[in-house]
């Protein structure tokens, strides 16, 4: 059913991702799909990494750890943005296209009042992506 599954990952806040990551792993195992973690970082130093290269390494390490625990191979792909706050949705969409994903599994918070002003990344993705999107709440 699915052959390329993509999961957007926020290394600064990894805890709320657990459910989405587990879901993606299960789906990848079930369909024998490849699994890719994608992430967007700022070019400036962030709490996670001093520079984009270090960020890429940390994302790979994060995937390796998950992969060892779950026994499913995971690829990674990191993107840098000049203005990540605004551009993150655009890059996630491009990441999904670059990896030929046919399913995106994305973690999202419960919609609240603030979502009337600007929506969640998961909601934006589901609204614009040509492939299937699984929003995990």
């Amino acid at each position: 059913m699915y052959s390329n599954i993509v999961v957007p990952v926020d290394l600064a806040h990894p805890d709320p991702l657990d459910k989405a990551l587990a879901t993606a792993t299960d789906l990848a195992r079930h369909y024998g799909a490849t699994l890719t973690y994608v992430s967007v970082t700022a070019e400036t130093p962030t709490a996670v990494a001093h520079n984009p290269r270090e960020f890429g390494e940390k994302l790979a390490a994060f995937a390796r750890k998950r992969s060892e625990a779950d026994g499913v191979a995971i690829d990674t792909k990191a993107y840098t943005a000049t203005d990540p706050t605004i551009d993150v949705d655009r890059y996630l969409l491009r990441a999904a296209e670059d990896t030929n994903a046919d399913l995106v599994v994305v973690a999202s918070h419960k919609p609240g009042l603030a979502d009337y002003f600007w929506g969640s990344h998961g909601g934006k993705l589901a609204g614009h992506a040509p492939m299937s999107v699984f929003v995990v709440r």
């Binding site: 520079n51 290269r53 890429g56 792909k77 993107y79 840098t80 491009r94």
Partner: peptide
């Protein structure tokens, strides 16, 4: 260029 997947090492710098 900023949207391309990260190039391998950014080269030497003095962190």
């Amino acid at each position: 260029s900023s949207g391309e997947p990260l190039p391998p090492p950014e080269g030497a710098s003095d962190v």
